[in-house]
């Protein structure tokens, strides 16, 4: 018997690497603020672990840090269920199967959630042991508010 459809927010990244923890910040902000029945999951973003957690009937918001050359804290919203796809890393290593590969794999496997939104927050400082920069912390607040609004409008 398959699991019932779920609403899940995934905060992705490494909180011990400065702005890489942007997704985890959003998860912390939403954990006590989401409606009943919404799961908030923190995860490192490894595709091999993330893909089995995605199901076609779910509604899913993914939040991750990105590095595109935009200014720190810039926010991009991608509708992955509609076909938008984040750019993949240049190579695929056993450590490099990230969120872009997770979305591509889930799509190939037919398990990409029917509603799948990715918020990408531009990071600037990925120093080991550092906290997220003020610009990314502010962006995390805004993304948390936008996800809360999208959840309440469902």
């Amino acid at each position: 018997m398959s699991d019932p459809p779920r609403r899940v927010v995934f905060g992705l990244g490494n909180p011990a690497r400065g702005d890489d923890g942007a997704g985890r910040l959003v998860a912390c902000l939403l954990r006590d603020a989401v409606p009943d029945g919404v799961a908030v999951i923190e995860q490192d973003g490894d595709a091999a672990s993330l893909v089995p957690m995605l199901h076609a009937d779910d509604a899913v918001w993914l939040v991750d840090a990105c590095c595109s050359g935009a200014s720190a804290g810039a926010i991009r919203r991608l509708n992955c269920a509609a076909g938008e796809t984040p750019p993949s890393a240049a190579t695929q290593s056993s450590h490099g199967l990230g969120v872009a590969e997770a979305i591509a794999l889930a799509r190939a496997l037919g398990s990409l959630p029917r509603r799948c939104v990715l918020f990408a927050i531009e990071g600037a400082d990925f120093t080991a042991g550092a906290s997220a920069s003020p610009a990314v912390q502010a962006a995390a607040q805004e993304v948390a508010a936008r996800i809360a609004a999208e959840l309440s409008s469902l």
Partner: peptide
């Protein structure tokens, strides 16, 4: 890579992840 392989061999990839 695995993503391209998953399109033609989804069961192999699902099994690997499991």
């Amino acid at each position: 890579g695995a993503v391209e392989m998953a399109k033609d061999h989804p069961d192999v990839v699902r099994q690997a992840l499991e």
